[in-house]
């Protein structure tokens, strides 16, 4: 049975510390790594090779199919095109059903079916030239695959779905916003309001429930990517306020949301679920905003280019304080884990 290799998740940092401080010789360290299950045994290597074989093989095959399709596009009758891709959707979905959604292979098959659904919709739009805007493609795609996404409980597939939702909204806003009176251009704050709500909601669901993944021990990359994009987008709001004064309405709402999201993240990842990377993202956001504020204050007061030296010192001080706090936290959590065994 294919299973994800576990040897990567074994913590070996304590052993490296011992090796450095005692010091230990190489043979003792290697022996310890074997006993800890860090070095992959034959089963682990078999799993890795299967993962690489299936993963790369599927990617290569699908890419080849796409290239084949692209080459023969002009010569294929429209029903041939629909049949070709539609068959792929059906076969992938059936394969997912036979494999079972509790297995990694089943989830991969369902992801392939979801991706091919979008390809099918794109072909439909190209063949019939309905004149529909591109946001309808992304929105329809996201709507059609939502049940699969929900059933699979597979983080990569949720990520694809989130990307579709964000692109649908972005394209929708770009198209319709020209019809709004008082529209402020595509960089208006409205463009990030709904994605903030949707992405923030998904992050909350991911952290508090098992709707999106199988267990709380599954990889943390998915919530971290969402947090990065969420906080990254929201950080621009106070920065805009610093350099252009900001303005009422949506901007104020978004500014409040920035502080709410920032404080909520700090509280949650400090007290409820320890995640140092999330706190580092929050620290980076704060550093960015404070640095922009410092630059504005320094150069508005008429300081010449020499003030850039102080900006450099300010950045150093901020990153140092942040690193110090994060390291202290990390040690405190590690010590707490050691005490509790």
């Amino acid at each position: 049975m294919l299973s994800l290799p576990k040897n990567l998740s074994v913590d070996k940092s304590w052993l490296y510390r011992l090796a450095s401080e005692i010091p230990l010789d190489g043979e003792a360290v290697e022996s310890a790594l074997c006993k800890m299950g860090v070095l992959p045994d034959r089963n682990d290597w078999r799993n890795w090779l299967m993962l690489i074989g299936y993963g790369l093989g599927a990617a290569l095959f699908l890419t080849g199919v796409i290239f084949f399709f692209a080459y023969n596009w002009e010569n294929l009758h429209r029903f041939g095109r629909f049949t070709f891709v539609g068959s792929g959707v059906i076969i992938s979905a059936l394969a997912a059903y036979w494999s079972g959604l509790d297995k990694f292979s089943g989830k991969l098959w369902l992801t392939a079916a979801s991706v091919l659904t979008g390809v099918l919709l794109a072909i439909f739009g190209m063949v019939y030239q309905t004149g529909a805007d591109s946001y309808m493609l992304f929105a329809s795609w996201a709507f059609l695959i939502f049940f699969w996404v929900f059933a699979a409980r597979f983080q990569p597939l949720w990520l694809i779905w989130l990307v579709l939702i964000n692109m649908a909204f972005g394209r929708w806003f770009f198209v319709i916003s020209h019809h709004w009176p008082g529209y402020g251009g595509i960089f208006s704050e409205w463009i990030i309001l709904l994605p903030v709500v949707v992405n923030g909601g998904i992050l909350l669901i991911r952290e508090k429930t098992t709707i999106i993944h199988n267990s709380y021990k599954e990889g943390r990359w998915f919530p971290r990517i969402i947090a990065f994009c969420l906080l990254g987008g929201l950080t621009l709001i106070p920065v805009e306020g610093i350099f252009s004064g900001g303005h009422g309405g949506v901007w104020v709402v978004l500014l409040v949301m920035y502080f709410v999201v920032l404080l909520a993240m700090i509280y949650f990842y400090l007290n409820v679920r320890h995640d140092l990377l999330m706190l580092t993202l929050a620290a980076i956001s704060i550093i960015f905003v404070l640095t922009c504020g410092f630059i504005r204050v320094l150069f508005e007061g008429g300081t010449d280019i020499g003030g850039i030296f102080f900006v450099g010192l300010f950045i150093l001080a901020e990153t140092t304080i942040a690193a110090r706090l994060l390291l202290t936290l990390s040690r405190k959590w590690k010590s707490h884990e050691n005490t509790n065994g």
Partner: peptide
């Protein structure tokens, strides 16, 4: 066309290998 055939073949070989 050639690229697609090579990619599909190598993909199948990798899947067979797995």
């Amino acid at each position: 066309m050639k690229k697609s055939l090579i990619l599909m073949s190598s993909g199948l070989i990798m899947l067979a290998g797995g």
